[in-house]
Nucleic acid binder design. Sequence first.
RNA 1: GCCGGGAUGGCGGAACUGGUAGACGCACGGGAUUCAAAAUCCCGCGCUAGCAAUAGCGUGUCGGUUCGAUUCCGACUCUCGGCACCA
Length: 830
Amino acid sequence: MEQIHLNLLIKNFQPSLIRAMLPEYTFKELEITIQKEWEKGKIFEASEDTSKKKFYALCMFPYPSGKLHMGHVRNYAIGDVISRFKRLNGFNVMQPMGWDAFGLPAENAAIKNNTAPDKWTYENIAQMKNQLKQLGLAIDWGREIATCDSSYYKWEQWLFIQLYKQGLIYKKTSMVNWDPVDQTVLANEQVIDGRGWRSGELVERKEIPQYFMKITDYAEDLLDGLDGLNEWPEQVKTMQKNWIGKSIGCEVDFTLADSEGIIKVYTTRPDTLMGATYLAIAPEHKISIGLANNNEDINNFIIECKKIGVAEADIATAEKKGIFSGIYAKHPLTGKNIPIWIANYVLINYGEGAVMAVPFHDARDFEFAKKYNLTMTKVVDSEFSNEDEVYLGDGKLINSDEFNGLPSLEAKKVITAKLEALSQGRKKIQYRLRDWGVSRQRFWGCPIPMIKCSKCGDVPEAEENLPIKLPAGISIDASGSPLKKLQSFLNCLCPLCGSSATRETDTLDTFFESSWYFARYASFDQDKKMLDERVNYWLPVDYYIGGIEHAILHLLYARFFNRLLYDLKLTNTKEPFHKLLTQGMVLKDGTKMSKSKGNTVDPQDLIDRYGADTARLFIMFAAPAEQSLEWSDEGIEGSHRFLKKLWKLVHEFLEHTEVQELESNNEGAQQLQYKLNATIEKVTDDLERRTSFNTAISSIMELMNMLIKANQIKAIDLVLRKEVLDKMLILLSPFVPHITKYLWEKINKNKVFEDQLWPSVDRAALIKDETTLVIQVNGKLKANMIISVAMPEESIKEAVLKLESVAKLVDQKKIKKIIYVKNKLVNIVI
RNA sequence: GCCGGGAUGGCGGAACUGGUAGACGCACGGGAUUCAAAAUCCCGCGCUAGCAAUAGCGUGUCGGUUCGAUUCCGACUCUCGGCACCA
């Protein structure tokens, strides 16, 4: 309707013959000028005035790889839109920025380019900071932190010592990927098809002593906490829940048949116990290792198993292999001997490193039993299962002696109770979550503040000696951490006995740094303690934005750390992140962009060619924030064109300063008023509730298209045109802050854009007295009808049946029913 | 292998609570303007048949629920992310 009306008028419109020269949209100069203004006016410095309502907007801080990539642009554009929107809504916004500066790439670059990791990292930070500034983000740069700075990692050394003293950090041995040629530990990423990426040699699993954090002590609390996270995506909460993997099952003791000792297994299916036909134990199980001493075949098998890396995905997808151990265990209920197999699919770090195998009711056991021709007994009956198929569901027990006929749920209880009575087993709550290994055999990380004393053992460093600084300017090679050979670092005195001792040379997992940086931003300049009372004003983070790839590890560790800080009374909030937005990945050629794959797209080209506003607008418009985005250069022109149109529109408005006498309540004006207010409502809702930025932008585009048409016919007076422009510029400003500030201040001389507030909706302008009704016959669209909203249902139905397109279909046929959805649709069923 | 997502025109996507599939933008085609081009403006644009009015088909595949399904349910295919040392 609206379209037709305006189009008719346009046909009669004579374009003016004289058109003044428009100034060109010189985005580069404009953006630099405006960024300087922001910096000079300290516009984005967060106030510490705690009487103001605060909003803490945070994007996951970047690893300083040296160059911005599209994922960064997407992340920081989203964060900036939200923080600018909140600022316009009157909040005291803090949007800080920092650098997740420790990590593997610095070492790789150092080896490759023969530079020191610290030098490389700080150069990268300078470069990326320069790029980020070009994006025009509303960041409080005064709070910048870099995790490789000793003023930051000093506090995690301090924290490490507190937790060690509390028993929340302990030492045990665990597996790493060992490159036998380079004699160094490899990250999973550095193992390609089972081989070291540099040496090309088959990697081996090796067991070494490492420090662990007792995250499992917090498993239940971390699980419980998920329920309160109402502003987190369900998807992320589900993933974390499954990762923690709480299960209620049964621990069963199988005694060895011919020697002393028991094998404990954990099972969530005690109801299938009578179908357990063999035991499978991990190659690293102490019984396996014991047997290997006297048995060449077993020893060889275990060595063979070690050739699979430590990554769970590799273990799970490897071909299932096993070897008979030669020994038997007694079934706790039947007393029968069942064979014990050593199997590569049993994980040493889950449960007890041993499973009771029930081939008919577990897919892995089934595959294994088929391969080695092991006995299978079906113990759960189901109408859905075939004779020779694995059945994972519940059902009634069969082939289970006294338990026959019991349903699974009941059988679980009864069999567990029986085992308990026999002292052969017990109910057990088990978590899939494992303690967090934090030791890394690397140079470029936070030194673990422990000292090895030949008399006192492992001793934490004295707090007054912190920070233990990583030596500067050290160049490294492929042979592992230089700390191991660096006497100036190694030599120290034992804090307990004073005798000479050596430092721990392992450094911390870099997830350690990213687990508390959000709190440090609030106490960025505090050098007396880790955190101060300001964290209680700023925390929790109100809106946290980052890639979906961090859904489990980073976000779980950060939640865990925040609980540690809470228990140490350093913060008074348990959960660190109130609302979470997990942006989708920016993909290129269908896969994650990464340096190692060499498929990165450089956003600098876009910024140079089109400006930051265009780059920001395009990445926000191209796809919903939470979906992955397949990158394509096409389409950026459209976003740039939109900004050029906006530029032209405002400048044309500025030319026509003579007052135009026009009725302000003509039909075109009413339609424009309606559209303006509908757009304000839509954009507000999209930003506040729906986090749907692409649709917010498209609705502003619609508004602008309508205003352009209205301008051409000059049917709209200058007051309304200015109102629409003013408000439209504010709606658009979170996305494209430079051009909107510039144009808004052009229209509103002597006023400052930053003093403005988000526009409110004029409800009166949104009242409509007519609406379009959809007419269907048997659910298929046949016609439209404009009705008055006041029209009663009966009259509507009558009118619909009289419509020609309806009448000819209905004809003589019997009408079964008529469905009427108020102000929306009529469906005639014949 | 396990856990969690995704699939809609030539392309990116929209349709919010089961109610007009394709908003907005890109690409493309036609026209205006121009000496010409770029830029800009106007019109068209799911597929098939038809001069047209119109009809049929159409949201990864197969099936179900419903007056009505992109939306809900079941099974599957492909694809992306994570799997504890990439960050």
